[in-house]
């Protein structure tokens, strides 16, 4: 064991002891949720406030929707960085894809994966799920299609314009839905206060703008992460 590793281990032991002693000072969860705090407020008034039954979605797309917009920007920046790093690459990894057997079985399987992704996005406000999870499911579906059918399919189906449209549509839809509230003189991204219908609580068409925001984030996450994978798996054209 070298000196560097020993020093690192000693540092980590000290860090662990400090962290452990700090854990004892953490407040009890039930104490933090006492009357008057933000959690107390959300647990009692989220359904009348937002119409969403799943409180995590209510926090993400209503109370803290502006943070979610910021997160969409982070994903956009990461994808833009990956595309920039591989800017000059044009050649394809696997033009033809796998064997006909794999293609036939994928023909049966792919629709169901896509269906699961759309289900998770659209039912995000009434059951576990939402735009983020469904978006990643759709991204892995796109990755599977590219792997099985070959990357040439991806370039035939998804031209530059379609990619640009998908990548921008999510973020633009999110901002546009937020801007609707500005017309009525409300805060950016406000939901029921801006006149979105609460609908029948617990059904698919309810909770005002939350399902639409879920679709926007799902588009954004799915197109961004799938594009990141496809860009990374391309072969280098200039070396």
């Amino acid at each position: 064991m070298t000196l560097g590793k020993t020093a690192t281990l000693a540092f980590l032991v000290i860090l662990a002891v400090l962290l452990f002693s700090a854990m004892g000072a953490l407040p009890e969860t039930t104490d933090r949720m006492e009357a008057g705090g933000p959690t107390w407020h959300i647990l009692r008034s989220a359904v009348p406030d937002t119409g969403a039954v799943n409180l995590v979605t209510a926090v993400l797309f209503d109370y803290r929707a502006f943070d979610t917009l910021g997160e969409a920007t982070v994903i956009f920046t990461a994808v833009a960085g990956v595309v920039l790093v591989f800017a000059r690459e044009a050649m394809v990894l696997s033009g033809k894809g796998l064997s006909p057997l794999a293609k036939k079985s994928m023909d049966i399987l792919t629709p169901f994966i896509a269906l699961l992704g759309f289900y998770v996005i659209l039912f995000g406000h009434i059951s576990p799920g939402g735009g983020f999870q469904g978006g990643v499911i759709l991204a892995s579906w796109a990755i599977l299609v590219v792997l099985i059918y070959g990357i040439r399919t991806e370039e035939d189906v998804l031209t530059g314009f379609v990619k640009m449209f998908l990548e921008s549509a999510g973020a633009l839809l999110f901002v546009a839905l937020g801007a609707v509230a500005l017309i009525g003189g409300r805060e950016f991204l406000s939901n029921l206060a801006a006149g979105f219908s609460p609908g029948d609580v617990g059904s698919v068409i309810s909770a005002g703008s939350i399902p639409l925001l879920n679709v926007a984030i799902g588009l954004k996450v799915a197109s961004g992460l799938a594009m990141m994978f496809v860009t990374m798996s391309k072969k280098d054209g200039d070396s």
């Binding site: 959690t39 997160e71 994808v79 990643v136």
Partner: peptide
């Protein structure tokens, strides 16, 4: 408490983006 759940949900997806980069 749903607030930490929302926080960690966004952190997971951002983590995937930054790891990819």
């Amino acid at each position: 408490d749903p607030i930490p759940h929302a926080l960690s949900l966004t952190a997971i997806v951002i983590g995937a983006g930054t790891t990819g980069y």
